[in-house]
């Protein structure tokens, strides 16, 4: 290039805004999973008939065998912390007034799990392997969302 902008006063910007709005369909297995959570406060699993992998959340097909999963089963939302992190920063990069704990939670008899908030506890009290259970919104307030679970908390 023969010449370039040499003072910041020469630079021009066009502020753009992209309104991104979608409806995301949960699908056959996802719909059943969210209904089980909303209506009964349970977590729905599905099992591959070939390799016996148990998916949580339930899925329509097995990613290992490419088979359709069968044997849908509901389990209580009780599991243990597989890994956790204490977030000190929010999505805008601003410091959180109160740090938020996130964990990946595994559930007995399944090969899956969920990432969710950990609550009713303090960061120094959390450890990998700690047993936790879901704290659910009251039935009438649930909408069929992963946020029907307020958080997971230490098992009482």
């Amino acid at each position: 290039m023969l010449s370039k902008l040499t003072t910041s006063a020469q630079t021009r910007q066009w502020p753009g805004h992209i309104p991104v709005e979608y409806v995301y369909t949960a699908g056959i297995a996802g719909e059943a999973f969210l209904r089980a959570l909303k209506d009964r406060g349970m977590l729905l699993t599905s099992q591959c008939p070939q390799c016996q992998t148990v998916y949580l959340p339930a899925r329509l097909y097995c990613e290992q065998c490419f088979e359709e999963t069968k044997q849908y089963e509901e389990i209580a939302p009780k599991g243990w912390v597989h890994t956790y992190t204490v977030a000190h920063v929010d999505i805008d990069g601003e410091a959180l007034a109160v740090p938020q704990i996130y964990a990946f939670i595994r559930f007995g008899g399944t090969n899956g799990g969920l990432i969710h908030r950990l609550g009713q506890t303090q960061p120094h009290q959390v450890s990998i392997g700690m047993e936790v259970e879901a704290l659910l919104l009251p039935g009438k307030e649930r909408t069929g969302s992963i946020n029907d679970i307020t958080c997971f908390q230490p098992t009482k």
């Binding site: 991104v20 204490v86 977030a87 908030r117």
Partner: peptide, 30 residues
């Protein structure tokens, strides 16, 4: 970070509203 968050699963993960790097924190800890 908001744009990056659009890469997360919209049903099971994104509704938690966390900064994308929480996933790195989880992975690093494990």
């Amino acid at each position: 970070h908001h744009i990056h968050q659009l890469a997360f699963d919209p049903i099971y993960h994104r509704p938690l509203g966390a900064h994308p790097q929480h996933l790195a924190g989880l992975e690093m800890a494990r």
